[in-house]
Amino acid sequence: MALLNIRNLTVKFATATGSFTAVDGIDVSVDKGEVLAIVGESGSGKSVSMLAVMGLLPDTATITADEMTYDGQDISNMTAVQRRKLIGREITMIFQEPVASLNPSFTTGFQIEEVLRLNLGMSRREAHARALELYRAVGIPEPEEKLKAYPHQMSGGQCQRVMIAMAIASNPRLLIADEPTTALDVTIQKQILDLLMKLQEDYGMALILITHDMGVVAETADRVVVQYKGKKMEEADVLSLFENPQHPYTRALLSALPENATGDRLPTVSDFFTQEAAR
C-alpha cells in the first residue's frame, strides 16, 4: 500500500485578476522506502502540490482532492492538532535555500535541540546528545563545535546538512526535499545527494525529491513524475523515462539538455511543440 496517496489534487490561488490554477488534477503516490522525483520547470506546480500536503500554503489557496491519505489516514480533514502530530514528525521537509531556512539569531545547535525538545519531548541533556549524534550522522565535521555555530559561520552545504539533520531527527517515514541542492555547487550537490540517498536507505524512509534538474533525477530517483503547467505529463520508472520517454514534453526536456546535443543547435521545447502540432 502506498504511504502517501493523492488523487486528483487541484490547487487554486485567488489573485487580484481572478483565480489561478497552479496544480490541476495531479495524482501522486509514493511507497514505503521509495524515491520519487517530481520534475518540472518553474511554474509547473511541482512545489505547490507538496506544500499542499504539508499544509504550508497561504489562505488564498483553495485545495481540493478526491483523496489525500497518509498511511491510510485522511490528511485533508485533519484538525490542526492531529496534523501537527504528523507534519514535522512522520513527514518532514527541507527547502532550497538552506541558509535562509535557518534563523540567523540562534546557533544551529539551539535550533535542532528545539526541534527535539518540542517535537519529541526530550530533555535538554537528551536533546543535546541526540543533536550531536545527528550531526555525526549527516557528516558535519567537528560536531561539538558546530552545535555552537551560527548559520552565517557555516557554508551553504553545511547548513543544508543541518536542515537534513533536523528533518531526520524524528525518524520520519517520508522526507520531502524541495530543490535541496539547487543553491549549491556541483561537488557539494553530489555530497548532499549521496547523503540523502544513504539516509534514505539506512532509515528506509520514502523520499520525494522536487527538482528541475534531469541530472539529479537520473542519479537518485526510482520513479519520476514529469509536470508541466500544473498537469502531469508522464509518470514512469527512471530507466524507462530516460530510455524511452513517452510524452513529447519529456522528450523535449531531455533533448534540451546540452549533453544530449546532436550537431550545432539545441532542440528547444517550443520546437518540439510546433513539430507535434504539425504532425
Binding site: 556541483v186 561537488t187 550537490q189 553530489k190 545527494l193 534538474d213 534531469m214 541530472g215 539529479v216 533525477v217 537520473a218 542519479e219 526510482d222 520508472d237 527512471v238 530507466l239 530516460f242 530510455e243 531531455l254 539538455l257 549533453e259 544530449n260
Partner: peptide
C-alpha cells in the same frame, strides 16, 4: 567531472 550528474542510460541502469 565526477560530481556532475550524468543522464546516461547505462549509468542509470547500473544504479537502479
Amino acid at each position: 567531472f565526477a560530481a556532475t550528474p550524468v543522464t546516461d542510460v547505462a549509468a542509470i541502469r547500473t544504479r537502479v
